[in-house]
Structure formats: C-alpha cells, structure tokens
C-alpha cells in the first residue's frame, strides 16, 4: 500500500453513467490484476474504493459508475486536477492456475478489472475468452478494447438490445480451462453455480479503510474470516461460503 497523489490526464463519459479516468503517478504498488485504489474526495469523509482497470507504467486507468455523491464528484473532475489515492490494495487475481484457455466473466462495472487480467493472461500466452454482461446497449463499454487485446469477446444484454440476450451465464462456451468473475452478487452466485471448472471471484462490500484495519468488510469463508479489502477482493471458488 502506498499513498500517492496522482494527476488526472483524462476523465470522460464512456457509456451511460460510466466514466473513464486516466491518471498519472507512482502506480508501482499495483502488482496484480484485480487490485483496487481508495480515492479521497474533498468534502466526503470516507474514501471510495475503485478497481484498477489498467496499469501501464505510471498510467492508471479507472472505470467507475456514478452511484452516489462520491462517484458523482469524481465524474466532474477535470484534466490537471490532483487525486489522493491509496494504491496497491487487495490481493488481486492469481493467473498461475488459469490453464491455457481461461474464461473471464464481467457484469457492468465488474468488467474493468478484467481488462488488466486479460492483458496479463494474454502476455502469458493464454487464449482468453471474455463474456461482458450489461443491462442494455447504452451501458456497454470496452468490447473493442478486449478484442484489441486478442480476446474472443461475447457481449450479453439483459434486454437483448445488443449482442446475446440474457445473462453472462447464458453465453457460456463448452470448453474453458478456468474462470474469473467480477460483477454484482447475483451474477457471482449464478456464475459459481453454472461454471464447473476452478475459478476466482471478486467481491464488493462497503468498506471503512480499504486496507484491513477496521474489519468493516469481513466475510466468512471456508478457511475462516476474511477481509474483502485485504484478504480479497478475490476469493477462490473453493473458499466461498454464500451467506447473503
């Protein structure tokens, strides 16, 4: 973990309610896909955890959905403004166990962390398939970015306004070696049920600190109590206990 002041290079609307922010600063503590940063916002007491979409040297990409006052304030920030981040939070996805043809499943703003994951897996020489699930056409983002990485991409929409109608679990391929998922809790549950290979799922929870001190985001797992922020957000399929 490191506390770093980043400079905003770009901040723009990517899809309905979804924004992309490109930041410049010391991103060296981001060492695995699936990690997150905790963003300080003027006038709000708690930081806002946002998953890392991409890291390239000193450049950090965040994609976030406007859901409340914090993300709304972020969406109005301009190029050149400074942003106070705690970086390098969370465990991130482990890529060593993926096999040669992993499947990535993202729902809504669960999609962004899969980008750096896909990039990493492809650099490791793996054949990556991605299923991106959205509610409707105007919420879709990053379909082409995943294609440009060399992924085989399927898009699903709940209302059928684009791509395949239904949920990500309605578009599962026959063969894949392993899966990685990030998205809302009902999606994670459905993926957990539908996918039979080993897998890793990234969870979301309201956090206090984001670095393991306050016990605000604890969950029960097969291997004991875990903090989503520090011991997660990524849990291995085998350790998950569904409580909610």
């Amino acid at each position: 973990m490191k506390n770093v002041i980043f400079e905003i290079k770009e901040n723009f609307k990517l899809a309905n309610g979804v924004y992309k922010m490109l930041l410049s600063g010391d991103a060296s503590d981001i060492t695995a896909p699936g990690q997150f940063v905790n963003v300080r916002i003027d006038g709000l007491y708690l930081r806002r955890p946002v998953s890392v979409c991409d890291r390239d040297g000193d450049l950090l990409t965040l994609i976030y959905k406007v859901v409340g006052s914090g993300t709304e304030a972020m969406s109005k920030m301009k190029k050149g403004e400074k942003l106070d981040l705690l970086t390098g939070l969370g465990n991130g996805y482990g890529t060593g166990v993926s096999g040669d043809a992993p499947l990535l499943l993202g729902g809504g703003v669960g999609v962004p962390p899969l980008y750096l994951l896909a990039k990493t897996l492809i650099e490791e020489g793996k054949k990556v398939s991605v299923i991106l699930g959205f509610n409707k056409k105007d919420e879709i983002f990053y379909e082409n970015e995943f294609k440009d990485l060399g992924c085989f991409v399927t898009v699903t929409t709940v209302d059928g306004s684009y791509g395949r109608k239904g949920f990500v679990t309605d578009a599962l391929p026959d063969n894949y070696s392993y899966y990685y998922a990030c998205g809302p809790l009902p999606m994670l549950k459905a993926v957990y049920k539908a996918c039979k290979t080993g897998g890793q799922l990234s969870f979301e929870e309201r956090m206090g600190c984001g670095f393991g001190a306050c016990m605000g985001c604890s969950c029960k797992t097969v291997t004991g109590y875990k903090r989503i922020c520090k011991d997660g957000p990524v849990l291995y399929k085998e350790e998950i206990l569904w409580e909610k």
């Binding site: 007491y45 929870e205 309201r206 206090g208 016990m215 605000g216 985001c217 604890s218 969950c219 109590y225």
Partner: peptide, 23 residues
C-alpha cells in the same frame, strides 16, 4: 467473534458509522 453482518459501515458529514460488533 465474527461480529455483525455486513454492511457494517456508513458515512455521514465529517464522520462515519460502524457496526463491526467486536470482530
């Protein structure tokens, strides 16, 4: 002790609320 169910955290003006429950 595991403590209370989540969500355990909320925010307010110049502060926060917690109900960790002595985990």
């Amino acid at each position: 002790r595991f403590g209370n169910p989540t969500p355990r955290i909320a925010e307010c003006a110049s502060g926060m609320l917690n109900a960790v429950g002595l985990q």
